[in-house]
Design a binder for these strands. Structure first.
Lengths: 188, 188
DNA sequence: CCCGGCGGAGAACGATCGTTCTCTGCCGAT
DNA sequence: ATCGGCAGAGAACGATCGTTCTCCGCCGGG
């Protein structure tokens, strides 16, 4: 019906949407097949198991996250602005009606204990984000110790916004980031 | 065999341990029964459903968390020290070999979309923590806007430590909290 | 036109889950 | 000692899951 690449993308995108909305374990492969319009046989020829599909979905989400972050910082003209753009990006995300927290954190909490492949994919995404922040901190001329602090603010904002159901955490975290940036870059 | 209160506690504690270690959905009621030494019939006479047991476990964890936080801040002699004691408490927790992140965040990610009772119990715990921090911030004479910033740091430290598998996030968050406290209380 | 194989749809399978039911033995009351 | 009822152990049940298999229609090559 459709070529392999298109089918793969259709499955990944459908699974991504369902997994994010309902949790990974709550979504059966039948639901993925229906949403993607790809037969189970074909799905299992593209992914050896549900676990492998989950990992593929997480990797797909990593690239979506990375490009979203990149385009959010496009208008920024300084490293400091690019750092704060992270929190504006979060704010816009938190306001989306189907926001349900960070898919990586959610999936890690759900399967991190039983599937090392899933745990590795989650860890890899977080490591990438930490590196992204570290690069910006370095560009801003701030000490390297600032980077994990900003990353922790971003992580905390995501879980707080998800549980509270409000986007407030984004600008609260942004304000804290501004303070930390001010202090870190104001030395002599 | 044993009185109702003891049986209830045995079930809750056994379920708590299993749910935290493996995730809620990965643990069957049979495993709870074996670990608690309480028959399924009795369990279902104490809790109407697994969902209700999960909520009871979360409430139990809330009291454990509250008292752990209280005892961690016992040696502190000022509001500022009590705030920083939160992060020392987290540090000790992250170093426990079976640390697997915040049970509330994990459970919310797993079931928050499907069970409003679970989502409510999680939200309630987070609200209590926010209030605790807000009280300390007020005692420290800092502006109220500092409280959610500190809470976000604590949340972010928990997920970061869980995913990274290292306790580093505790002292990174603590350092950020110190900076924010310094700035917030140095005015005037 | 016929035939072989490939892909889709979905039935089937075995496992597991939450929940209930049955059976058995024990205990106190008479 | 006898009886009634409660509690424990675990079998049973219906649903659902991940995964595989079967069947059927379609297509290109002779």
């Amino acid at each position: 019906m459709i070529d392999e690449k298109t089918a793969r993308e259709a499955v990944i995108e459908a699974a991504d949407e369902l997994f994010y909305a309902h949790g990974v374990q709550a979504v059966g492969m039948d639901a993925v097949r229906t949403a993607a319009g790809v037969s189970l046989k074909r799905i299992y020829s593209l992914f050896a198991s549900k676990d492998e599909l989950i990992v593929a979905v997480l990797r797909h989400r990593t690239t979506v996250w990375d490009s979203g972050l990149a385009s959010a910082s496009e208008r920024a003209t300084s490293a400091r602005e690019r750092i704060l753009a992270i929190f504006d990006f979060l704010d816009a995300w938190f306001r989306e009606p189907d926001f349900r927290g960070c898919a990586f954190i959610n999936t890690h909490g759900e399967l991190g204990a039983s599937s090392t492949a899933v745990a590795d994919a989650v860890r890899e995404q977080k490591r990438g984000f930490q590196e992204y922040v570290a690069r910006l901190v370095s560009d801003a001329g701030a000490p390297a110790t600032l980077a994990p602090q900003l990353a922790i603010l971003a992580e905390g904002a995501q879980t707080t916004a998800a549980i509270a159901g409000t986007p407030d955490a984004a600008h609260q975290a942004r304000a804290a980031a501004e303070t930390l940036l001010d202090v870190a870059t104001a030395r002599g």
